[in-house]
């Protein structure tokens, strides 16, 4: 460890800076590079996923409001895996069907069950949208600190080495400090995109969830009207 930062004072390229660094600093740098890789993986994943979800919502809304029979729509959607509004619609329809097949008594109970089923599906969908955004937030807030930790350790080591070398010319001090600062640089490099991506994706997820909630409310209203219409004649017959 005494040789750290003093062995090759002339070479200050990135690679040599990394290789000169001490064990802890190297570990921090590698960890931060890993965090950066993970951040960008999430960013790419979320970008693809959010685009897909948005397209699905658009397509579903178009189909739903096209005047097509809900029964027919349910039949086409029920035998394939759905997400987003489709999943909410299917869960609501399944509950509706189950209740009517067995002959529901109370319209209020049926309404509540359908709402419950839609809420569960909605929260599940929102959860998948917001998955892994937490790690973005963690990287965004902790990255600079981890980098700073690497820097502090690196500077400590380099100062110890300087004390050992018993000379204080800038040429001796500089490489150790440059190497230590590299850790902070990598930390910021990982943290800045993470923070930006977190803000963007959490806002996007909020918007999509709100859209799905809106649909769920609307569908709930439609179903409620249907329940009233279907149960009214039955009650009138009694």
């Amino acid at each position: 460890m005494e040789q750290v930062g003093l062995a090759a004072t002339s070479d200050v390229s990135l690679w040599s800076l990394f290789m000169q660094a001490g064990f802890v600093v190297k570990l921090v740098m590698l960890g931060l590079i890993g965090a950066s890789v993970w951040t960008w993986a999430i960013v790419v994943d979320k970008m693809l996923k959010f685009g897909k979800v948005r397209r699905q919502l658009d397509a579903f809304e178009q189909v739903f409001w096209s005047g097509q029979s809900l029964e027919e729509l349910y039949r086409t959607l029920s035998d394939r895996t759905t997400s987003g509004m489709g999943a909410i619609f299917v869960s609501a329809m399944r509950e509706w069907k189950k209740s009517f097949e067995r002959g529901a008594r109370s319209p209020i109970g049926l309404q509540m069950r359908i709402d419950r089923a839609m809420d569960v599906t909605l929260s599940r969908e929102a959860e998948t949208l917001e998955a892994r955004l937490g790690s973005l937030a963690t990287i965004g807030s902790a990255g600079p600190f981890v980098g700073l930790f690497g820097t502090v350790v690196g500077i400590m080591t380099s100062f110890q080495a300087i004390a050992g070398s018993k000379q204080t010319s800038l040429a001796v001090v500089a490489p150790g400090i440059a190497e230590a600062l590299l850790a902070t640089a990598i930390g910021l490099l990982a943290a800045i995109p993470a923070v930006i991506a977190y803000n963007k994706f959490s806002a996007d997820a909020g918007k999509l969830t709100a859209r799905m909630e809106g649909f769920a409310d609307e569908f709930s209203a439609i179903l409620s009207r249907q329940i009233d219409e279907k149960l009214q004649p039955r009650q009138a017959a009694q």
Binding site: A41, V44, L48
Partner: peptide, 17 residues
């Protein structure tokens, strides 16, 4: 997720190189 992870790793490798 796998594909995006690979994409990100490749991206980083390129940038670092």
């Amino acid at each position: 997720m796998k594909t995006s992870l690979v994409t990100s790793a490749v991206l980083h490798a390129l940038v670092l190189t």
